[in-house]
């Protein structure tokens, strides 16, 4: 081992009485276990290419920052994937962005907002989306014969406690879902 490596491997002297050293050296990458919300926003181009990355990130957030079981991490991965896909397909035009925001509270809940810009070719209003969900949420899923039409009404509706849409300031749509951590769903 050369001199440089030796120096790197040696634990530096820490004067914990010094306030700055104390604060910096106590910082870690560990996620806080406190119940304060952690908010993370990701902006992606309107392109399905990026959705596998969003799915991976969703798994990481739900598994590490909420207390939900692995089963619910997978379920929320699907929820976010379906919402993001809808935004890409209907809400934002190519060249525009989709914003996905996660708000997690350890041991309590996970919320996700998916915002589009309303520039897509098949833009829907919040009222139209609410009506669409209401109309189809009680349909027997085995009677659906089309290739489309299961994402929001079957997967997202069944795997979230709250599903709502609002018309946002950009002229687009914001989908908001909440899943609360209940007994039996914890790690």
């Amino acid at each position: 081992m050369d001199a440089t490596n030796t120096a790197l491997a040696t634990k530096p002297h820490v004067d914990e009485s010094h306030p700055e050293e104390h604060s910096v050296l106590n910082k870690t990458n560990a996620v806080s276990k406190e119940t304060t919300p952690v908010k993370i926003s990701i902006i992606i181009p309107t392109n399905a290419y990026f959705m596998s990355g969003i799915r991976d990130f969703t798994m990481t957030v739900v598994q590490n920052m909420t207390g939900f079981t692995e089963q619910w991490a997978y379920r929320f991965q699907s929820v976010v994937d379906e919402l993001t896909n809808n935004a890409i397909e209907f809400g934002s035009a190519p060249g525009k962005d989709i914003k996905v925001t996660f708000v997690s509270i350890q041991g309590k809940s996970i919320e996700v907002y998916v915002e589009d810009t309303g520039t897509g070719p098949n833009k829907k209003t919040a009222a139209e989306m609410e009506a669409f969900i209401e109309e189809r949420k009680n349909v027997d899923p085995t009677t659906i014969t089309s290739i489309r039409g299961r994402g929001l009404t079957q997967i997202v509706s069944n795997w979230t406690d709250t599903l709502e849409f609002t018309d946002n300031q950009q002229g687009g749509l914001t989908a908001h879902v909440v899943k609360n951590l209940e007994a039996g769903e914890q790690l």
Partner: peptide, 13 residues
Amino acid sequence: EYMNSKSIGYVTD
């Protein structure tokens, strides 16, 4: 490892 709602739609088709 993963299938989305459209994939499931194809299975039914």
